[in-house]
Simulated assay, not measured.
Amino acid sequence: MKALRCKALGPASQLVLEDVAEPALGPGQVLLRVHAAGVNFPDTLIIEGRYQFQPPLPFSPGGEAAGVVAAVGEQVKGFKIGDRVMALTGWGSFAEYVAVDQHQVLPMPGTMDFTTAAGFAMTYGTALHALTQRGRLQPEETLLVLGASGGVGLAAVEIGKALGARVIAAASHPDKLAVARQAGADEAIDYSQASLKDEIKRLTAGQGVDVVFDPVGGALTEQALRGLAWDGRLLVVGFASGEIAQLAANLTLLKGAAVVGVFWGAFAQRQAQANAANFQRLFAWHATGRLKPLVSQTYALANAGQAIERLARRQAVGKLVVQVVADAQA
């Protein structure tokens, strides 16, 4: 099979397309014929050895995929050859086949094509878990989404609106904010042109926001914390800026606020039933058109390294997807 391989830790330009053997199938695993694979921020880290989980070299990056079940291992229940599924693989999806534990596999809803499904699980699963289980977002509360034009940011904008919140999108360029507005954002902040804290104050009449969804990190995190309302919740989702904020603890005391970590992958494993219920909710919203995932660009398998580079430079809008087979939109 063809696979894009990381043979030495370093930039995406070092990834190579090779012919390799199909992965061995262990008990409780499903062999997936990959039609499409989503590109996510962890892919930019794992190839450089900077992610919290590190596979041995050589390996294929790619943490999520959609395709057809090609084989099932012993002890697998609920899946059969030919099923259309989406899967969270951790790594290995930038290949024609990937073996994945059955608990990391979900049936694809009939409303999705492979390209959409390949980019759905990680962003929407993260955003819904963050806003509900971790952020306790309520109808008519105000939600601030940082990095609002990225895949997980746009998912948070859409889900925030579906939950009945007022959504303020924040990003670094007017074009990115236009995409967030199309996804349903009520207000927008260009934090490359104005102080995030001051704009929050202006847009909330000095009251602050109830929940901050922060996949960016860096200097923006403290500004967002200062912009929280009483009993506000700052959701730490990721660090796309490359910097981890060092926060003043007294700010949480003065605002009665909470800084809450969001680790969706661990939640999905530890609370599988709650995660499954989240996805039933997401699939229902998608079926009725309330969620409209944006795949802004697709790449051939041989060019998947270019997608990783684009994401690392924070140039991506919505999701980038690798189409491993030509009919990935079928």
Score class of each variant (00 low, 15 high):
residue 158 E to C: 06
residue 101 D to E: 13
residue 185 A to T: 03
residue 123 T to L: 04
residue 107 P to A: 04
residue 155 A to W: 15
residue 144 L to M: 03
residue 180 A to S: 14
residue 101 D to R: 06
residue 106 L to R: 14
residue 152 V to T: 15
residue 95 A to F: 09
residue 165 A to M: 10
residue 177 L to K: 02
residue 184 G to E: 15
residue 120 F to P: 01
residue 188 A to P: 04
residue 138 Q to W: 05
residue 161 K to Q: 12
residue 120 F to H: 07
residue 94 F to W: 07
residue 105 V to P: 15
residue 156 A to L: 00
residue 127 A to V: 04
residue 161 K to S: 14
residue 130 A to D: 13
residue 181 R to S: 15
residue 119 G to I: 10
residue 111 T to K: 08
residue 97 Y to S: 12
residue 187 E to P: 14
residue 180 A to N: 00
residue 189 I to W: 13
residue 161 K to G: 09
residue 115 T to P: 01
residue 112 M to P: 06
residue 185 A to K: 03
residue 111 T to D: 06
residue 169 A to I: 08
residue 184 G to L: 14
residue 93 S to W: 05
residue 91 W to Q: 10
residue 189 I to H: 06
residue 167 V to C: 03
residue 155 A to K: 02
residue 174 P to G: 01
residue 144 L to P: 00
residue 127 A to I: 07
residue 131 L to R: 00
residue 97 Y to V: 03
residue 162 A to K: 01
residue 94 F to L: 14
residue 112 M to K: 00
residue 177 L to T: 13
residue 131 L to H: 00
residue 162 A to C: 04
residue 188 A to T: 14
residue 105 V to M: 15
residue 95 A to G: 11
residue 179 V to T: 12
residue 101 D to M: 12
residue 114 F to Q: 15
residue 138 Q to H: 15
residue 155 A to C: 00
residue 188 A to C: 09
residue 185 A to E: 05
residue 171 A to P: 04
residue 97 Y to I: 13
residue 122 M to V: 14
residue 184 G to C: 09
residue 153 G to N: 04
residue 155 A to T: 03
residue 108 M to W: 08
residue 176 K to W: 08
residue 107 P to R: 03
residue 149 S to E: 10
residue 177 L to F: 11
residue 177 L to M: 12
